[in-house]
Design a protein around this nucleic acid. Sequence first.
DNA 1: ACTCTGAGTCAAGACGAG
DNA 2: CTAATTGACTCAGAGT
DNA 3: CTCGTCC
Length: 741
Amino acid sequence: MGIKGLTKLLAANAPNSMKETTFESYSGREIAVDASTSIYQFLIVVGRNGTQMLTNDAGQVTSHLQGLFSRTIRLLEAGMKPVYVFDGKPPDLKKQELAKRHSKRMDASEYLAAAIESGVKEDIEKYSKRTVKVTRQHNEDCKKLLRLMGVPVVEASSEAEAECATLCKTGKVYAVASEDMDTLTFGAPIFVRHLMGSSRKFPVVQYEVAKILKELNLTMDQFIDLCILCGCDYCDGIRGIGGQTALKLVRQHGSIENIVEKISKVRYRIPENWPFQEARCIFKDPVVSVSDQNHVFEWITPDEEVLKNFLVNENGFNHDRVTKAIGKIKAANYRSSNRRLHSLKPWLRTSVPLKSKETKCQLGVPSAFLNPKMFSLQVYMHLRPKLLWPSVDELVRPVNLFLGVCKELALFSSYIHVSSSWSIFFLLFPFQALLLLYLMGLQAFFDMDAIGRLNKTKYECLLFDMDDTLYPMSTGINYACRKNIEEYMLQFLEIDASEVPRMCLELYKEYGTTMAGLKALGYGFDNDEFHAFVHGRLPYERLKPDPVLRNLLLSMPQRKIIFTNADKAHADQVLSRLGLDDCFEGIICFETLNPPFEPNSYEDEVYKCLSSEEPDYNLLFSDSERKADAIYDENDDSLLPKSQILCKPSLESMEAAIQIANVDPKKTIFFDDSVRNIASGKAAGLHTVIVGSSELVPGADLALTSIHNIKEALPEIWEEEEDQFEQVVQSTAVETVDVLA
DNA sequence: ACTCTGAGTCAAGACGAG
DNA sequence: CTAATTGACTCAGAGT
DNA sequence: CTCGTCC
């Protein structure tokens, strides 16, 4: 039922909070859709002829599949990235409402039976529609279909609308498309109605919750109260109070509590045991599935064979139609992956560094950064000293790309570690190198002995991510951190509040850290200042010493190194709070990979970040390439600026870490909680363990729900101690050497 | 006369051949 | 083991 | 643009 009369109320009292848009304008956007309501519509309307519906050979209804299939393709073809959200358990408060609906349906069933008997066609049509319900099987069919199509599926803990709103609040989707006004009450920042109305009966309308609050001059809490008074699914309103009066009362008294206190008890009857506070809770802090803050949705290529089998063989779809449709999905996928950051472009246009230069000065920056020109990448790149062999620079890029591909291929089979010297080899003899690589791959394929050897490989080093890996996500540090980043963007970079969460995630997704992304967009803030702001007031007190983990770590014979994207101060703080500061040989942190930048000695910087005597050409090239790419070409649709910041999950950062730590990736295990970091760790040739997940992810050799399970899952780490002859003597007082120092 | 509420009722997809 | 939508529209009736 | 068809 949603919120009674909210549409009218908003149209009358907050007309500027809604704007007409078009279907096409959501191209490139992630859109959350409530699956259950869609399925319901399909069941009611698709292929219905009296009680007759679309069915497969077994007589099972397939209307929902037909509808969902074509609708999803329509969205994908328009460049949208749908995320379907399925309902979970309804809240207890909704039970009575549901019971009411159920009994209505039962009545309808009786009418239907009567209608069939009497043979009145219109009645049969009418009542059979009313008896429609979405069964578990329907939901499962649709989930299966979507997964096979490569479209993400979310199972909500409770209400799908609440889950959708949360996805939007956290920036995981751009907007929620729904007809249900509840979505706004749950606080979805951007809410789109009539998106699916292909019949241009209604135009597409976009609501923004921030604008609604502004225009109604209410806080979010007051807006929720207003919605409850209007009448929602969870409890009754007050008889005699509809939208108009509710708005007046909320404006006047501020909250339901005050309204109840002030209004005439004679005129209005307040329900006994009125659960408005519980209803308020459902809207304010809805039960949503606890998902990884940093989880990102992916739209992958459809599983063609299985999908065909499912639709054609199991459900009687026309083979040619399905083949054609799959072609459409693939084409759409290809288009969007080719310019998947299409959606970043608005920011690129509006957030060119001019503003950030000013901000920069306001912040009072260290003198090294006073020349504002340095912070406009365009200007800087224009003035920068010529790189070594600029023409080679151009040449190197494709070679590096090629090398990257080869590496991934080769390392995928875990046999060959391509060292940096390969870079030169590839540069000089690309074809010979390719041939050699091919032969090595062939040899490895047949060399079963190599497999045996590989399995026995001793581990020499353990590389640990820190945040959410050495301590669980539940401490809330990650969440607090993100809030701080958002606040920084809002306060110092003057980014529009409505864009912040989404931008935050999008940049994180593309660049590894939001900070790296911001830099890539041309924001010229000071790194230290950013870190100080973001990490300065985290609830570190929630981190408690972890003696169990400490003992585990100290008992491991291998070298142990931290590899984090965070800055050194944060790493020190966290490790000291956890009581682990003496467990690690070193910390590879933000400053290690991104040494303080000195404008005059650009070339030196490249050398300095490598601790080796001789410059490593592989890194040198990729580094210069990175800087060169920082220019954003307005005319190019597909190219986005690269960040000048080196951080996970870039392959370069992995290689740099391996280089700095001076380890052999084949003998190193990399622990991280991020799927992307794990994937690129694997690409760099490391053994990988995903922490905080019970399921294996692509590129992970092992999954650990908690780092504490390490002994059970990886006994090899300790076994080694017994049969290793020249065992490294592990002094109990491990010297903590910061690599930066 | 005018405003507002509340209860009941209805309708709801997507495609493409002609 | 069960249950599973929603908004627009109309019209009657109650209150101002 | 409409109307029949999708399974």
